[in-house]
Design a binder for these strands. Sequence first.
DNA 1: TACGCGTGGTA
DNA 2: TTACCAAGCGT
Length: 347
Amino acid sequence: MAPRAEIPAVREALLGWYREHRRDLPWRRSRDPYGVWVSEVMLQQTRVDTVVPYHRRFLERFPTVEALARAPEAEVLAVWSGLGYYRRARLLHQGARAVVERHAARVPDTFALLRALPGVGDYTAGAIGSIAYGLPVPVVDGNVERVLTRLHTLRGDPRASPGKSLLRALAARYAEHPAPGEVNQALMELGALVCAPSAPKCLLCPVKAHCGALAAGEPERYPEKRARAAPRPERWSALVATLDDKVWLVPSDLGRWTAMLLPPMVERDHTARQVVSSLGMSGIVRAVREAGAVTHVLTHASMRVKVFVGELLREPSRGELVARGALGGRAVPKVTLKVLEAALGVL
DNA sequence: TACGCGTGGTA
DNA sequence: TTACCAAGCGT
């Protein structure tokens, strides 16, 4: 099916708008492929405003791909702490090591070699390739998906085949241009600032004259994506055990926080007596009492965590005692901070 | 293909 | 408040 919108005309209007309205973002101030790579991984499923301070800190701490490759994973996770989707950090770290080993510490400049790096999928390979190296390759993220399905009135679920490959082919035609990185960023920027999921600002849109969905009076009908299941409720009990000014944390064996530091916790709705027994802490904690509850919502689960506090009688043989002031330098997810705050007051 | 993976912003 | 969902990836 031939798209209705004329691609060269849309692209020029889009580029003109982008030159005028592009946000001044840290990773747009240079084309350093490593800096672009870090930004693209951080931006996966994460808002720009959230990423900005993390990107700055990350590049201060790991200014080059070699510096990142040299670092222990725990340090990388510590800098990533709070950003979420921690597997991204592990894969970026593995990717940096792969670049040092396979490509003499130079971020590769072909789509295929980028795509072969850990944590780099079609989107990220396209973004690094087009933005850092000017390769005429497409990107299809949530923004591009929304902008192009609306412009070209593409029906059906764009995440399923054949919608996915049609969309990618269409985006590839937009990227056939001397400045593919600008075109790709312009498509994403329009999706972020104007062509929003709900209440799009069509009156301000530089390509409104070309938009099939607007002409039909139903821009919000697109994209026709499947609804996501609600997070399933989970009931947890956590025990915050203290020794002087330190708290006892253990490396998590949950997939979502593998090896990151959490208070001992169990997926049960327990009493104080039960949580001590269930966690095998009889004989090493005393004065255990309930200290409230916290809620932590993830994509696929909604955790309600009952928080218990107790005093350690001695140093445990596993896990580690961490001073409250030292949490900032460690690999600690938000749920740990929430539970500790409920147990101990403001950290 | 469908699911698991964090966190926070917005309506 | 609930629901959606944001510059996705790996399995």
